[in-house]
Nucleic acid binder design. Structure first.
Lengths: 136, 136
DNA sequence: AAAGTGTACTAGTCGAATTAATACACTTAA
DNA sequence: TTAAGTGTATTAATTCGACTAGTACACTTT
């Protein structure tokens, strides 16, 4: 049984908290289909050892994912990718909800909001991640 | 000339930072049309005195508003409500942009994103657009 | 000049977020 | 039953950014 290819990697210099990096990578792995619903995720201690961090840090990441419905906890077994998490759209629900909320608070109509989204869609070019500005 | 009715008020017990309360109230005053494009906003020191806070705190609020395009700085004159700020939709642009970006990263189509927005719109109940609270 | 505008710089305080150490409850497999 | 595996509750230390304020400055208007 060949060891599973390391599923997570850390970028210490990114400034992004460890547990969030784990959350992001796991969520993306599932949303992209690399990990399918029903598949087990690496155990807390497995990841903790691999990355050299405390098990609790990994646990926090998993709890966050469970809270988000991306993963289901199976006592004694571990964390398993859920059906819901396999839908890429689910990953944006939290952000979408926040946006809708503020839009409503501002008295925007649904149509106006969608219009705004469409506009942003045109303007937003993801190909070039971000027009990085090099020092002269 | 009658003193301008106090434009800002603080709710110390709300836990919301002072400068954010100012930002919110100013933005709403403009977005709602109570303050029209071209109108001057109260001066930093004026507000600071009224509210009993440091001028820098007010300045930070104004800087935030300028950053958001709600207000324009006129050196020697003060802060003036902008055209853009009068459009309530402009207030959500930053959030909308962030959402669009992650959606694209996840490989979502524009249609799927809009669909998700619509779904959230149905589920999200914000009966009171903005519960303006008059002191009884 | 005098009086008004906003702000750069500095510094202090405070609280939430992050990470870790440890011990525990639980399930599976032998 | 027991050994080895799973995730986690509790507690605590620490870090780090948000917030606020004091002061002095550059600027424009009148």
């Amino acid at each position: 049984m060949g060891r599973t290819p390391r599923m997570f990697s850390l970028n210490p210099s990114s400034g992004i908290p460890i547990y969030r990096q784990i959350v992001h990578q796991a969520r993306f792995a599932i949303a992209s289909g690399r990990v399918k619903p029903g598949d087990r995720l690496p155990s807390v201690r497995n990841i903790a050892t691999q990355l050299g961090v405390n098990p609790m840090t990994v646990s926090k990441a998993y709890s966050t994912l469970e809270q988000a419905g991306v993963v289901v906890r199976h006592p004694g077994i571990g964390m398993v990718a859920s059906e819901a998490g396999a839908d890429p759209a689910s990953a944006i629900d939290a952000d979408a909800q926040a946006l809708v909320r503020t839009a409503k608070q501002l008295g925007l109509s649904r149509k106006e909001l969608v219009e705004r989204i469409n506009k942003q869609w045109e303007e937003e070019w993801t190909d070039q991640p971000i027009p990085l500005r090099r020092s002269r």
